[in-house]
């Protein structure tokens, strides 16, 4: 007898290290092959895909990151909305966004189709960067600089929802990102938005 007729509640007597029926072996083989496909997709997407969480990852003092954000605001501020600075950095530049309880600063004004390096960090506790409505999510951790190369592919008025619990005011923490169509004559990578 190569098969068992006992339940899982009974001790198998003697030797049970025996080959399985063909049907079981085939399923294990198919499952294994599928697991390899599942695995292969990740390196493949790093190589060919456009969305990866790799980024430029660094350690940073929260205060230093916040100071750099302030400097960035002074450099490129174009307007304010409800007391929050709106910043329009030139395409291709490093841009900074700080999360703190309970706000995202500053408001970013970007150009469609241009690449930026978006640096994310937190001043106090963990926050969650969730870009609405396109649903892109990253963890924002105090003490860590997460630099992501982003290229907005549509213009519009976007929101940043905080989706990591950061205290009792967590649900009031909303930021804003504005993406405008690139100027018709502008060549990306030269100068800022007026």
């Amino acid at each position: 007898m190569h098969t068992e007729t006992h339940t899982g509640l009974e001790s198998p007597k003697g030797i049970w290290w025996k080959p399985a029926h063909k049907s079981e072996k085939v399923w294990v083989g198919i499952a294994f092959a599928w697991c390899m496909v599942l695995f292969a997709m990740m390196p493949l997407w790093h190589w060919k895909g456009g969305q990866n969480p790799s980024g430029i990852r660094r350690r940073v003092e929260p205060a230093a990151f916040f100071a750099r954000t302030q400097e960035f605001i002074q450099q490129y501020q174009v307007d304010t909305d409800r007391g929050m600075p709106i910043v329009a950095p030139p395409p291709g530049s490093d841009i900074y966004l700080t999360g703190m309880s309970f706000q995202w600063t500053p408001i970013l004004k970007l150009q469609k189709g241009a690449e930026y390096i978006l640096h994310l960090s937190a001043l106090d506790v963990n926050h969650g960067f969730s870009l609405y409505p396109i649903n892109v999510n990253f963890q924002v951790i105090p003490g860590y600089d997460y630099g992501l190369r982003i290229t907005p592919n549509a213009s519009g008025d976007f929101r940043i929802i905080c989706n990591e619990f950061c205290g009792i005011g967590h649900h009031t923490m909303v930021g804003r990102v504005i993406v405008e169509d690139a100027p018709a004559t502008g060549t990306p990578g030269t100068g800022g938005t007026p």
Binding site: T3, E4, T5, H6, T7, G8, P12, W16, W17, K18, P19, A20, H21, E24, V28
Partner: peptide, 9 residues
């Protein structure tokens, strides 16, 4: 009365 198809697997 489910049985163990194959203990090894």
């Amino acid at each position: 009365g489910a049985v163990v198809l194959n203990e090894k697997i």
